[in-house]
Design a protein around this nucleic acid. Sequence first.
DNA 1: TGGCATGCGGAGTCAGGTTCCGTATTGTTG
DNA 2: CAACAATACGGAACCTGACTCCGCATGCCA
Lengths: 195, 195
Amino acid sequence: MSASDHGPQTSARKRADARRNEQSLLDAAAAAFLAAGVDAPVREIAARAGVGVGTIYRHFPTRADLVIAVYRHQVEAAAEAGPTLLATSDTPFAALAQWIDLFVDFLVTKHGLAEALQSDDTTFEALHAYFLDRLVPVCTRLLDAAATAGEVRPDVAAYELMRGVGNLCIGAGRDPRYDARRLVELLIAGLRLNP
Amino acid sequence: MSASDHGPQTSARKRADARRNEQSLLDAAAAAFLAAGVDAPVREIAARAGVGVGTIYRHFPTRADLVIAVYRHQVEAAAEAGPTLLATSDTPFAALAQWIDLFVDFLVTKHGLAEALQSDDTTFEALHAYFLDRLVPVCTRLLDAAATAGEVRPDVAAYELMRGVGNLCIGAGRDPRYDARRLVELLIAGLRLNP
DNA sequence: TGGCATGCGGAGTCAGGTTCCGTATTGTTG
DNA sequence: CAACAATACGGAACCTGACTCCGCATGCCA
């Protein structure tokens, strides 16, 4: 099991019923997260999937494992979008800005995810780690390229920037007076050197 | 009882033991918040104060009431600092920047407060409301002055700015790689028009 | 000092998360 | 196909922490 392995997901040789339940759980969790956020009660997810709570814990020992499994595809897509944007954009800064936009879109549409990402609750440690492992290197490349081109301040680390962006997404969509996207734009504007 | 009345605090005519307990609770809560953040267990606060949990709920029906009472002085001080800074600073922008600095200092030294401020937990509704009632008008004045002077973009509301700043302070002090102050600076820089 | 309004303590209730183990299902082997 | 071992399942039981409620204690006033 490699260090970047999170949760069972596509699992190898398991009993047929186990694989079926795992899929039901992923579907149920996705639905529950959509309806009630990533803090949806364990019992509710189990009920939606038509399984007992024990089955959840067997497949996904911590809530983070479940959340990761549910959003894995989208996180991978974001990670892969980085290099692509860098290759196709006019300037590294444009690529960075677009990539951050993508990330913000992802976060603001997942009720409670931004909160979970920043929470110090140990339940979410693995979630935090997964996002960081997967996305910080991508962001670092974009940021470095933009810094090398002299477009942004060279003294801000990708980790810090991503946490800042993640933080700004907390509570987005709960209040029409708060537009996370606009504030992230401000933050990125503050990062820029020669407009 | 005016609309901006929060918690009993200095209370008028109550029994002597009640007033004593209220003070013990404030002291105990302040200590507990310092040690364990504003989410410190109710039972622990009660124990520190040497009272039963019922006594907490009698004096401070919601956690927000207790938090407000504990930090009231500092919030008032921040509110009063606004006009002062505006009067003594070279430019409205400088006053705004200093005031935001003050606010950030306050938040990052209160473990868990920034989190609570943004949480949608109904327990903290009153806290949210109190901060907004008290500080948004102050920030609005600073922001308006800076906008009028052409120093900042005129299209960002104080409410949004303050929530953004509050959000950026979440998790500050938990991780040396994350410096909330620096990111807030970036945000303010992004707000600026003619540097 | 007596009477009673006020306030107190903490056991009890409720809501979630997490564990555990007897039972059921699956897959394999003779 | 039958019988068995391995695997997985369900959900009752348990734990933690917030919040309520009421019989008892305390302070206040006459």
